[in-house]
Design a protein around this nucleic acid. Sequence first.
DNA 1: CGGCCTTAATTTTTT
DNA 2: ATTAAGGCCG
Length: 830
Amino acid sequence: MFSAHTHSGASFDAHHSPLLQHLNPEQLAAVTLPPEPALILAGAGSGKTRVLTTRIAWLLQTGQVTPGGVLAVTFTNKAAKEMMTRLQAMLPVNVRGMWIGTFHGLCNRFLRSHFKLANLPEAFQILDTQDQLSAIKRLCKQFNVDTDDERFAPKKLARFIGACKEEGQRPNMLDARDPETRKKIEIYQLYEEQCQREGVVDFGELMLRSFELLRDNDPIREHYRRRFRHILIDEFQDTNKLQYAWIKMIAGLPAEGGGAAVLAVGDDDQSIYAFRGARVGNMADFVREFNVQHQIKLEENYRSGSNILDSANELISHNTKRLGKNLRTSQGPGEPVRVIESTSDFAEAQWMVDEMKQLVREGLNRKEIAVLYRSNAQSRVIETALFNAGVPYRVYGGLRFFERAEIKHALAYLRLLENPVDDTSFMRVVNFPPRGIGARTIEQLQDAARAFEGGKGCSLHAAVSAIPGKAGANLSAFVAKIDVLREQTTGLNLREIIDLVLDHSGLLTHYRAEKEGADRIENLEELVNAAESFVTQEGFGRDAVALPVDEWGEPLTQSPVSQGLPVRPEPVEGPASTLRPTQDRPSSARTEGLAPDAETGETLSPLAAFLTHAALESGDNQAQAGQDAIQLMTVHASKGLEFDAVFIGGMEEGLFPHENAMSDYEGLEEERRLMYVAITRARQRLYLSHSQTRMLHGQTRYNLKSRFFDELPETALKWITPKNPGFGSGFGAGFNSSGASNKGAAYANPAWGRSSLGSNSEVFKSPPVPVQKAEAGHGIKAGMAVFHSKFGEGKVQAIEGTGNDARAQVNFPRHGVKWLALSVAKLTPI
DNA sequence: CGGCCTTAATTTTTT
DNA sequence: ATTAAGGCCG
């Protein structure tokens, strides 16, 4: 089954290539696999990216494929960039010209090449999630959809449409069994028409339309199948149904005589995106459908000591649905995994900060220390503690650069220059900065646009002339402004265009007058910089030198790598059928066959290319990158990263595993995988922390410590604070409430008051004192341990109401969280 | 039309 | 507790 093969497709001494040095046997086997479908099960920290990039380099170097014959897909731009950078470092190839990118980036490239066949305008624009939502809202208003009815809430509709697209379903393919679904499908249909009319596509559409073009156009499909001999997919466990279908379509299944060597790299244990459509099952499907004969496990971990790895292994072994894999290390045990209990989230944060300071004193870089948490809301208290201690920190997540309102506004103006019928952009800025165009006017305009030519409809831009009076004049002035800008900016370079638009749109003036506008101005200036570096890096812009690309869009390099290599896709002979492909792009001397690849921007204007870039790459979301600062992020955001020291906070039932995920088995397994990801981020030190109380949504919650503690090997752990009975032990109060001293005495333990580190003499600012909040009458208090005749022992989470209406939220380890009316339920304090 | 106030939501997220 | 979005009044 999973075994290390070392055969190679090349006959010469490929194994002596310097590329292959320092690879372990499994990595070497993966890199030098024969050109056939294969699955690499790559554990955390096992050198996955290295294998992927070395594989590509090795294939190129041994002449098994040309740069143009490689298709490498990732999920994030970051991963794609990393792959290109590392490949570039290994070989003198033009990685920019290679098809290495995200699913959406590559689909965009594909659709730009074949925009006519895809039935899209040449400069189609991409809607991000925000844009999509506002497009749906606009549509709902127009067609009088009752969005107050939560079944038809715009967000729900967006999810419905997205889900349909992921299933490959167009409106006409869907069956409406009930009125609700019928209406949703109808809205989906209208949404599609609206997008088509406005020349925009959402993210799902990029994927689906690419898939459909490949599926429905034989010459196109055959061309790409012949071309891409090697397809490599990163993070395969995160692929959704459509993405996998797309892979099958572009690779061709062996059963259909397809021949691409698909190398899928993934880790089922790190599948943490089922909630957004990822299907781990694609791994098993892949093995079956591609008749995979080569499966290799990369289990050697180069990151952590065995205490950390044993913890990860033991935890994940509690999952049932696994392909099976165990991380191992040749390092020693390393530091134990430290477990800390605090009395409050505040104390927890303070403890972390003190410990971090000690770590820094011992020589760790701050940027090598991370705090991971399950949900973003947890970051605040830690930020506060770090801030008060004067420790620099960096929070990942939140708004990304291109998502900021002021940037979106600027981009909307720019998009209107490219495409006046983009109503989403029109709506965004028609009255921003305010120019006396209100809701009433907009409504009139929308009515006029819809009624145009007896219901045929037209863009808002085109309907402006139909509006009379003052309102009409204001609208006309806006449209005229855009039209003038378009004229003024023709022939200018990207920087000049943006400068002019920022100025003439009134955005700069508006934000200058605003009290809090300084940051926004700064961001707008940053937009100019982003455009500038885009031009330089991507080679766009008026003066940019076009990339050397041959007639098939393959990069021309002078390197020996691609010289004289025979494999180059033949131009597709136009078959004598009606499916004969048409020339997509009018220009150029390419007369017959398919249009070659578009180097994005080769024909697009620099502005259009930049707008595409902005939509596909929302940019950084980290302020002050590069500073030596403590890293704060969700566990999700930490995937793929590693740190010397990792703190995982909020290790409590309801938080981690999250309450919304613990009810069903699948959800709990995903939470466990999430925990697995979190644990395996740590190189040297790992801290797991839980707190007796925690503020959530303005209320104090009393949580049991996470069940995951019971799934870790005791030998790898070091309980800094005394270990108290927890979730699995029947009942988990870390303190007593009635004065009886069961565990309370433990706090006299000398371990208290000292930090974990032998050398560390930090004193705890706040030893864990039981926190109690008295509630009137019934004698039941939040945080109390209680007994219920049916549910057994539990811990009171919260009290609500008074007198006969008083209810208690109680967490019973065996029965979950219950709300009990205190006038009815007999709860006895223990 | 614009500012202010009430209301509701608050797991995780990339493109 | 905090924030964002939508509705209402000046």
